[in-house]
Design a protein around this nucleic acid. Structure first.
Lengths: 172, 172
DNA sequence: GTGGATGCAAAGAATTTGCAACCAA
DNA sequence: TTGGTTGCAAATTCTTTGCATCCAC
């Protein structure tokens, strides 16, 4: 997969399939092997998701595409396909909106979302493996899960404390 | 709180405040102490949530109210108030819809939702305390979280296997 | 009596669907 | 060439808002 039989140097090939596969290559391969077509809108959306590497709303993704790369409806449809394929993961945030992020190697990580500014940070821990195993033992199939943490980030706390030094010391 | 000073027997009082407080009593007390009014629609919605003790959509809750107890809009508004007060917890499910469940004593538990039939089971484990603590140490405030597990329940697996014995053996 | 809460209607936002035209394989 | 994809428009669903009326306190 990394280099063809025609060349031992990973970057030395002249043909496309001699390159080290990029994230986009991997995503396209997954599309292809599912019998789906690799179209301009799909490439554009995947590139945006890969470049971003952070959850984004459908609206945001559409906005970040180079202008009129495709219709908003197409973004909806493509993301539904990507999610079905597992290329993309859907997360739900405190206000109920869903965000999408690229998920090429099923990396298990979570997010902490600031209640105030909406900033998303990544948390790289694995806390739910035991539960998933337990559920499988109970007879559940295709088990996945979703975890989101919400809180007020340090920056927003500081800002709030400066604006109103008294009330912000009271925790929820 | 369990019995008034007028009676030592927990069930022996004649007045309302001599009863053991019910869940509804507790919820109403929380409303009152927040300066909010105890109205017929609010009582009806709370009773439905308490009786159910399982996540339900706004539509379902409205439907389960004894006919024309209140308008759908009122259910929306009441649930927003209850959520704000922490009387109710909002969960997000695989299709992106939000469900609400009563949350009178901040019990930490999660759900496993069947992808196929939508059945919700409760999981009583605590897996995220360590992460919440870590986030607070990093400077986050008002930290909460949300966890949902999705899978195909044993009953649906069996049903699917009977309908199509070949393809259902392939795990995701 | 008074202000918070509700009902109704209507607006607004988010998402889905139908169908003809298009283009990747 | 052909069927999966897309764009556009319109339908549908979900949620919020405005305002007059009502009723809990």
């Amino acid at each position: 997969m990394i280099a063809s039989t025609q060349s031992n140097h990973p970057l030395g090939g002249v043909k496309n399939f001699d390159r080290i596969p990029t994230s986009l290559d991997l995503a396209c391969a997954r599309l292809k092997s599912a019998g789906l077509r690799i179209t301009q809108p799909r490439i554009a959306i995947l590139e945006t998701l890969i470049k971003r590497d952070h959850p984004a709303s459908i609206e945001q993704i559409h906005h970040e595409l180079t202008s009129d790369a495709c219709d908003l409806v197409t973004v909806y449809r493509c993301l539904a396909v990507f999610e079905e394929l597992g290329l993309v993961r859907r997360c739900f945030f405190h206000n109920g909106t869903s965000l999408y992020e690229i998920n090429l190697n099923d990396s298990r990580h979570y997010h902490i979302v600031c209640r105030s500014c909406g900033k998303v940070e990544r948390i790289d821990v694995s806390i739910t493996d035991g539960v998933e195993r337990m559920l499988r033992e109970r007879g559940y199939d295709q088990v996945t899960h979703m975890v989101e943490f919400f809180g007020v980030c340090p920056a927003c706390r500081k800002k709030a404390a400066e604006a109103d030094p008294v009330s912000t010391t009271i925790a929820r």
